[in-house]
Amino acid sequence: MEDLRITLDTKPGASLHASILRPAGDDHKGNPLSNTLIVFLNGLALPSAGWSGVIERLIALHKEHGQPVPTLFSYDRYGQGKSDPDPSDKESDLPYGHDARSVVADLHQLLTQVVQSELSHRPQNDGGEQEADLRLVLVCNSIGCPLARLFAAEQHSRRQKQQPSFHIAAYLFLDSMIANTDFVSLFPDPDSEDFGNETDLPSGVTLTDLRHARAQFRRFFHPTVPNQERFDRRGMRQLLPDADQPPLPSYAGAGGESLPPLLTVVGHDWDEFARQSEQPPFTVSSAITNSYMNTAWGAYNEGLTRLVPVTSQGSPQEVKIAKGCGHFVQKDDPGFVAAEINGILDALVSRGQ
């Protein structure tokens, strides 16, 4: 991967760190992936370097089968990894700066510049000899998944305004953040007036466990908890109140037909996530995690599978479980993620789009 420093035209005075791998050779004729760009979208805790194992295994997998490797692109958001802080964030005593809409706008601008300057791709509205829209595959973890959904909606709006340059053909959601919760409310409050009896709690769960879990989730995951990016997450629940809405937009195929995107939803291994949650500094019991957190997350992931029509997948999709993986699937099993990406690419090639 080649490292880049990119300054957005919309945000001068700061730069983003990015990495790109271009297909080898100049002749793309006959390469069904020559018009494909895989974009990796990070969560909050792991920067773009967290995808290195996946990328290495994906390259090795394609070389092993004599297949071309598409263009790969990863980046650190403002304030993350090796990128500069967001220059639009004002000095304040509050820890909050830019929000999800700003992140999505930055991603669009970043890809627009990369497509034109690094890939020498001429979008269809750029005059002169035109090329087909670039095909994007978004590989996302954690908060990267809701960001991908918001980005897709923004791209759909741009396409309706005749501003195409790339379309999203496929998504891989790796243990998406639950975007419509404050996390604390996933657990009953033992100190509320309408709380029932302790005897009604699931086996192995105590009132002390519940209070501790609520306190830990408030401390680590509540939308008001600050992060080094100054990414303000407080409005995320309003932007994406439902797991299964709005649907991921279709795109125009080579023949002008409307095609739904491919979608793969991956969830963590419940037992492994519960085991990791018991470790410091989180220290939430497995009984609590399995009774409340895992069940809520499983239901949310099932909702995500309905973001595309059943017909686009051929049959009702099920959530894939990454065996032995906690929340950071790309870190715990990069080979699994590489294989899933490869499967998506094979499906796109089979589509002929």
Rank of each mutant, 00 (worst) to 15 (best):
K323W: 02
E340S: 09
A287D: 04
A299F: 04
G335M: 12
Q313P: 03
A338W: 14
V310K: 06
V284P: 02
G326N: 07
G352I: 04
Y292E: 02
G303W: 05
G335W: 04
G326K: 06
I344A: 05
H327S: 09
Y300P: 01
T289V: 13
T311V: 12
Y300L: 00
G298M: 00
E318K: 09
K331Y: 15
Q330S: 15
N301T: 01
V308H: 09
W297L: 05
Y300G: 00
A339F: 11
S286R: 04
V329H: 03
W297F: 10
L348M: 06
A338S: 15
T311K: 13
V319Y: 07
V310L: 07
D333R: 01
Y292I: 01
V329M: 03
N301C: 08
R306L: 11
A296W: 12
E302S: 03
W297P: 02
P316N: 10
M293L: 12
S285I: 06
D332L: 11
V284N: 05
G335E: 04
S315N: 10
T289E: 03
A299P: 03
L348S: 03
S286M: 05
H327V: 11
I341S: 02
S285P: 09
I321G: 03
V329C: 03
G335D: 02
V319A: 05
F328R: 11
D332S: 13
G352C: 06
A338I: 14
K323F: 02
A299L: 09
F336V: 11
G298T: 00
T311I: 10
N294Y: 08
E340C: 10
P309S: 08
N301W: 00
K320V: 15
Q330K: 15
S315D: 05
V329T: 08
V337P: 03
F328C: 15
C325F: 06
T305W: 14
G314Q: 06
R306W: 06
L345E: 09
D333N: 08
E302A: 01
G343R: 09
A347G: 12
D333I: 00
N290D: 07
A296Y: 12
E318S: 09
V310P: 06
S312H: 07
S291A: 15
T305K: 11
V349T: 14
A338Y: 14
T311Y: 10
A322I: 13
R306T: 07
F336I: 10
I288F: 06
T295V: 05
Q317M: 14
V310M: 08
I341C: 06
I288R: 02
T289P: 00
K331A: 15
Y292G: 01
S315L: 13
I321K: 00
R306H: 12
G335I: 11
G335V: 09
N301Y: 03
C325T: 04
F336W: 15
N301E: 01
L304C: 03
L307H: 06
G326E: 02
L348Q: 03
T311G: 07
E340W: 02
E302G: 01
A338T: 14
V308K: 11
V349K: 10
G335L: 12
N290A: 07
G324Q: 00
S291N: 06
A299R: 07
S350A: 15
S312Y: 04
